[in-house]
Design a protein around this nucleic acid. Structure first.
Lengths: 212, 212
DNA sequence: GTCTATATGGCGATAGAC
DNA sequence: GTCTATCGCCATATAGAC
């Protein structure tokens, strides 16, 4: 999925000796930003390269110089979004309560970037089709996310902060499902839904969030 | 499930004389069935009338004789699905526990009709865009569904079967969100998710399902 | 690196014969 | 009621000039 072969091109991108990738990285970023907005609004299948190109002030052919195909552009956008959200939630932390609180923080942050929420909402739905370009990406992503949150709940159980009778894996699936479902409701009517609040209420029903 | 029995349908108000309409109703049903499958797989924007026509064994022009536009076809499909699911869940019952148990039954039933689940999942996501033909439909549908489930939880509170500290409206939003989110996970990996079981576990955490 | 021009094909919808 | 034929538009992608 990733096209960044070099390890340290993300921030500076100046020290890349060969290849013209570093020089164009700012354009690439601008394109991905525009693509995110377009795919968020119309979905991947519904969104057009024409729209993306217009939003970033280029021709379609110019755009396709940076990303050889629409699918490659989608991969870039998903990578971009992953980089950012992984910075927000310490999914691999061994401090389980930090992980869960991170999810609430993510929900709160998401309410400030509706475009990203729309992108994931629309894309995860249309990618349920087995022949969608991002199908494998989402299958893998959900499996790994749920696995990590299951681990967090299991740690809570060890600490004695998980409510009795609650199974870690079921709780993890429910947590992710709740976040996803609340996003749809929030997108449809932003005034009557507070994603972070509803998520926190749910978590507090099954775990002592303030402990540890 | 012929439509000749209905005198006045809400969205498609056809007042045609009985003769020709009754004869074509079976074709209409076949078209909607095929459209449901196509829209479920590729979404409304991604799915094509060409595909629908081919699936039902007609030309595009022949199809457009029954539904004058793609949007009209979408409305027909949504009507069809609503008719069926309203028969499953007694949303307006004053026996709150029947309503909640009905939701679990619906989740169980949904696992047997993946096409319908895909349709709603994909469609509700892409309809979050304000200019989508089904946007108003989904806004209204979510509001009314959540209102009714809120009512059910409020009844539980009166009966004393709702867990202390749980707010009916938050519980209703969470219930609907959970059902939606579980559908995405189930579509992505059907073997590792049991929608009905996870929903029931959630409900049992906040309400005494077996009472009354 | 970006452009114009174009190839190639799918889309929704219409017109009119039968 | 269903068809063939066609229109006009938009899509992704390529070729080659600058």
């Amino acid at each position: 999925m990733s096209e960044t072969t070099a390890k340290k091109t993300t921030t500076t991108g100046r020290n890349k000796p060969r290849g013209s990738y570093a020089k164009s990285s700012s354009k690439r970023a601008a394109i991905m930003e525009a693509a995110l907005a377009v795919f968020a609004k119309d979905g991947y299948r519904g969104g057009s390269l024409r729209d993306v190109a217009m939003n970033v002030g280029m021709s379609e052919a110019g755009l396709l110089h940076h990303f050889p195909s629409k699918t490659a552009l989608l991969a870039g956008v998903l990578d971009l979004r992953d980089q950012r959200s992984l910075e927000m939630v310490p999914l691999d932390s061994d401090r389980a309560h930090d992980t869960l609180r991170g999810l609430v923080a993510l929900a709160r942050y998401n309410a400030s970037v509706p475009g990203v929420v729309e992108l994931y909402c629309t894309l995860s739905a249309e990618a349920t089709s087995a022949d969608h370009p991002a199908h494998a990406y989402f299958v893998e992503r959900y499996a790994s996310t749920i696995e990590k949150i299951t681990h967090a709940f299991a740690l809570c159980a060890k600490l004695g902060t998980l409510r009795g009778g609650v199974r870690p894996d079921g709780a993890a699936r429910a947590t992710v499902a709740l976040m996803d479902g609340l996003q749809v409701q929030w997108l449809l009517d932003r005034d009557s839904v507070d994603m972070a609040e509803d998520l926190e209420s749910f978590l507090r029903e099954i775990v002592d969030l303030d402990a540890a």
